[in-house]
Simulated assay, not measured.
Amino acid sequence: MKQLLIISGLPKATYYYWVNCFGRPNKDEEIEKVLIKLRKLHPNAGYRPMVELLKREGYIVNHKKVQRLMRKLGLCITSFWRKTRKYSSYRGKVGKVAKNLLNRRFNSKVVHQKLVTDTTEFKYYDNGQVKKAYLNPYMDLFNREVVSFEISKQPNFIAISNALSKAIEITSDCPYRRTFHSDQGWAYQTPYYRQKLQEHNIYQSMSRKGNCHDNSVVENF
């Protein structure tokens, strides 16, 4: 053995360290079995989602340990989702563009007087598959409360219209004329949307073209 260690250049202490390690019981055997089971159910989950999945199974494990065990078991993801283009509701001038009445005045001393809205795309998992959903919130600038919202699987006008109708009804108690602010998305330019606001004596305000800072409160949300 001494000659073999000399030829291989392996230190004696290192050799006996690994000999002792091979004889130790695997303390992570139970967690490793759960990881293998979860990988079959969630083939696209990386080590961070795995941490949350383990919590659901009743195992509280540090993310570094999960990453190490996944590497050991060969469970690391080898392919990644291609970064897709961020959703944009802007389709050019398809209707009438309103003036920027809000002008970045993102505060209000009156409840339900100023509301901001936008359509946001996000991804979610459904039986191991990545799908998209679209959120349409209406936020009150008085206290940053979301007074109404709709979630849909497609960026359609029905969801925006439903959220608008709820927002109009909820904010009808405002003693002053209301202002609803949005970007220049196609849905907000349509005659129906504009007419809906006019029927309830609501000012329409829009951000400048390609300027997300004009609607930064709801953009950050």
Rank of each mutant, 00 (worst) to 15 (best):
K131M: 09
L10R: 12
Q198H: 11
Y124Q: 02
K196P: 08
C174I: 09
M50A: 06
M139R: 04
S205V: 09
R56Y: 10
N103H: 07
E52Y: 14
V19Y: 05
R144Y: 11
N201M: 01
G23Y: 14
Y188D: 00
A98I: 03
I60V: 15
Q198C: 07
L41V: 09
N20T: 13
I202K: 05
E52G: 13
S88Y: 02
V146I: 15
S205P: 04
R104S: 07
Y59S: 09
Q189G: 00
T179Q: 00
Y193F: 08
R208W: 00
I158R: 07
V19W: 03
N156V: 08
Y90Q: 10
K12Q: 11
R105P: 06
G128R: 00
I6P: 06
L101D: 01
Q204L: 06
K109M: 04
L197T: 04
L10I: 10
D118N: 03
N100H: 08
K2M: 13
L101S: 10
K96C: 09
R48I: 12
K196V: 02
K123Q: 11
T171A: 14
V147W: 01
T120Y: 02
A187P: 03
S161D: 15
R208M: 01
H200F: 01
P49I: 06
L35V: 07
K196D: 12
K55Y: 08
K55T: 10
L53I: 07
D126Y: 14
F106T: 03
N26W: 01
Q129T: 13
G92H: 06
N100S: 00
V116C: 00
P191N: 11
L10G: 05
L38A: 06
V34E: 15
I6Q: 14
Y134A: 00
S79H: 10
Y124M: 04
I36V: 15
E52N: 13
L101C: 08
K166I: 05
I36T: 15
T117C: 12
H200V: 08
K37M: 08
K83I: 08
G9M: 09
H200E: 10
C76W: 05
E199C: 00
H181V: 12
G74T: 06
N127G: 13
V130P: 06
Y188Q: 03
H200Y: 01
S88G: 05
S182V: 04
L54C: 13
F122E: 04
Y124W: 03
K131I: 10
K65G: 11
H200K: 06
H63R: 07
R71A: 09
